[in-house]
């Protein structure tokens, strides 16, 4: 049976604005994975390393962070700060000998864009290949 990963998506207000306006049915119709949960932030700069680690503690198989393009952030540095925090989590995963690909940062144009759906689909495929999170203690 195919593995269905638990994906936690952290995205800023601006990159997710149009995606959320679609509503759950609209997003599903566009191909947004049903196993991905959106956690909306006022800005990528508000993202905390501890929130990303907590997602893994609570059972996420992977975490996807979506922010504005680095030079187009509404709050100037927010998405760059988010990217640095994602790198910190990648490093921590490596230290724990867990695949750093389980967390990824994507810089997208603001507003609804098919890329918002596409990157979550990409993440879904990658996590299906990687299998369940080693933190769950399940057989891989």
């Amino acid at each position: 049976m195919a593995f269905t990963p638990d994906i936690q998506v952290f995205c800023c207000h601006y990159t997710s604005q149009q995606a959320l306006a679609e509503g759950p049915e609209g997003l599903a119709a566009d191909g947004f994975p049903a196993n991905a949960t959106i956690n909306r932030l006022v800005c990528g700069g508000k993202l905390k390393v501890s929130s990303l680690l907590a997602a893994f503690e609570q059972g996420a198989d992977g975490v996807c962070v979506i922010g504005c393009r680095p030079d187009e952030c509404h709050n100037l540095m927010g998405s760059q700060r988010a990217a640095r925090r994602v790198l910190a989590v990648k490093k921590a995963l490596e230290e724990l000998e867990v695949e750093p690909e389980r967390v990824a940062m994507f810089h997208l144009e603001r507003g609804f864009h098919p890329e918002f759906v596409r990157v979550t689909q990409e993440m879904n495929e990658k996590l299906q290949q990687l299998g369940p999170s080693p933190f769950k203690g399940e057989k891989r």
Partner: peptide, 19 residues
């Protein structure tokens, strides 16, 4: 304080990984 929060989480994850 911030680093304590992170390390606590990492220790829990490390232990979880070892079952």
């Amino acid at each position: 304080e911030r680093e304590v929060e992170l390390l606590s989480s990492l220790i829990r994850l490390g232990k979880q990984k070892q079952g």
